[in-house]
Amino acid sequence: MEAIILQVLNGLDKGSAYALIALGLTLIFGTLGVVNFAHGALFMIGAFCAVTLSRIISLSHEVVDETQTDFLGNPLKVEVPYVYDWFGQAAGDTIIDWAVPLSIIFAIPVMVAIGVLMERGLIKHFYKRPHADQILVTFGLAIVLQEIIKYYYGANPIPTPAPSAFVGSFDFGIMLGFEPNQIIYPYWRIIYFGFAAIIIGAVFAFLQFTTFGMVVRAGMADRETVQLLGINIDRRFTLMFGIAAAVAGLAGVMYTPINSPNYHMGMDFLVLSFVVVVVGGMGSLPGAVAAGFLLGILESFASMREVLNVLPGLNQIIIYLVAIIILLTRPRGLMGRKGVMED
């Protein structure tokens, strides 16, 4: 029992990342009908937003400290971050410590801007071209974005720690009445899961309960009729692209403490997220989210030692295996709508 709960929990954080990226992919596919291979790159750019902001925050200048001396007896020069000058030392430390959560505020406008720019600058011209062309051009764009990031940030992973308040683990087992130290779970992963749940809820609420969302849903169902009603659906879809980019970016921002960002993390996640979208059903938002969590949890179950003893290597291939089985038996995916990309 403990093992099962632990594996479910372990699957949640990866599952959250899959679900968030797949949600963005599905939003783009459902609204614009474009298969976006650059979505993983957006996830990666989000992660590097966090890196950038934490670098900006800890920008510092040299100050001569009279109270300390180095070994020659000269006054010591110390690096003082600018935030100390503005907010005082205690507040400054807190700000530096909380760089990753603060990056959320920084990342949203940046990612929306990148998304809108991408749609207006490039993808707009590919609506009428075959899906293969869309895949190819966004694949090229992904390479370009990845290389730009690599040029400015280097090829090595950049550790970006979570706030110190969330370092350490949480003994989940005690809460449920198990022995101590049976089910331990890092705080940040709980936060990541909660964050993902909030974002997913916000996107669904936005689509369900606002007029804007209603128009977008109508456009997804029948674009032409909406246009005939005199609504500029293109502009709304462009904004949806921006929102999808922001969702992927936020998934990346919050993922940095779990996995130090490097330039190819996007590609690693992209392949899996595509599999998730296909399993969930192309164009189905709930399907994407459900499949994301499902595959994340399945993957963590497959990496249990008991399972690996029976079927070695299963953890490596489980996601692809599930995808192949689903595609062959239920081509529409778990929750795919009828008539959407069925061939």
Binding site: H131, F274, G313, Q316, Y320, I324, L328, P331, M341, D343
Partner: peptide
């Protein structure tokens, strides 16, 4: 197996098979 579907699904299926082969070659 892969040719039972076409379009983007075919791409994903072949991708899945290739990634499976890669992972298996690396591990089991």
């Amino acid at each position: 197996i892969s040719l039972r579907r076409s379009g983007i699904y075919f791409s994903i299926l072949t991708l899945a098979f290739a990634q499976m082969s890669y992972s298996l070659a690396y591990s089991v």
